[in-house]
Write a protein that binds this DNA or RNA. Structure first.
Lengths: 185, 185
DNA sequence: ATCTTATATATGCTTAATCTTATATTATCA
DNA sequence: TGATAATATAAGATTAAGCATATATAAGAT
């Protein structure tokens, strides 16, 4: 139900269409909540059924009519309720760690290659994160608030902190393999 | 499809029933891949359809018959293929970060409470992690291999590293709130 | 005496998410 | 000329997962 509230959060800043929201998601929250286009549209429909949004139809020539979603008072109340509710923590889930768990049956060379590819992927993700501050700053055009901007950047900080922790972990494993600190049997 | 391969991984150690596997999951991989009982049974059925396992029916008095799943040669090959494949990284997904992203509209007191509850939750999770080494060590009864044991513990190391990074991040946010470093508007 | 837990498997129902495809026009690029 | 991208919305199909419930017996706890 998190996508619902993420969308409500943006609609609380400004009325948007599904098309707008897809672009905004891709440029601001993608590092912790990527959203599929069809899922945004379906969730928007549900938000309307719940009475949390209202639709303004904006006719256009040459293009399909825009359906601009506005948050309602009820939607604002729901957003605030959710923001104040306990953090919706989910149990951690990592498919790569399944590979690690069963890596004992691989050779040291194969394990080394695996962890080196972890490192490469994480470095790549960290490099991609470098583009995000500019994208987030751009969104200040819609919402020119240093306070809001501060919290947006906190989410990126968190992503970077996690990725660095993962990177340091993988590098320490590589060291241990190279130093012969991994039991052979 | 990760649960499939996690189950294959355990069946490669030893033949098990769905009931066995549920208990093993709860004691060894729960910190990065919690598995639902019904999901384990359904996945076991699929594994058999794929020819990756074979079932040995063990009749019992007083209790339902046990269906012991054995990995096949084809299952072993599939497991090895998957272990050597690139890490199945998934885009990060964090509902709590959605709350953070939109926290600008809360008061500093409310935000402080939110981050303090993050800290409490993460400390609680870290405390729970302390019980895991003993549980994992216990599984050495089935699989007495120091090498396997080493990789099992690596997954816990990763969880701890991530949780500590999250904790340090939340604590630094609390400091900034208390020091008046958060923009008011 | 009753309740809960352990042993053991399985189905029903629901849902968020993902991927694919449909529709229709305009503009841009090669 | 042909292909792709941008603008805009939406439905179809599939799936992993999660939660509840069914069945049946035995052992242990209150």
């Amino acid at each position: 139900m998190s996508l619902e509230h993420a969308i409500l959060g943006f609609l609380n800043y400004h009325p948007y269409t599904g098309y707008d929201l897809k672009k905004i998601f891709d440029h601001s929250v993608q590092h912790f909540w990527a959203a599929d286009q069809s899922q945004i549209y379906r969730t928007l429909a549900r938000l309307k059924e719940n009475g949390w949004t209202e639709v303004e139809k904006v006719p256009q020539e040459d293009h399909p009519d825009r359906k601009v979603y506005h948050i309602t008072e009820s939607g604002k109340a729901e957003l605030r309720r959710w923001l104040l509710a306990p953090p919706p923590m989910e149990p951690p889930r990592s498919a790569p760690l399944i590979q690690v768990f069963f890596s004992g049956q691989l050779s040291n060379e194969e394990v080394l290659a695996k962890f080196e590819s972890f490192v490469a992927i994480m470095q790549h993700i960290l490099a991609q994160y470098e583009a995000i501050p500019a994208q987030i700053a751009e969104y200040q055009r819609d919402v020119p608030s240093p306070r809001e901007h501060f919290f947006w950047l906190l989410t990126l900080e968190n992503g970077i902190a996690n990725m660095r922790a993962n990177l340091a972990w993988a590098q320490s494993v590589i060291e241990r393999i190279k130093n012969g600190q991994v039991p052979e049997k």
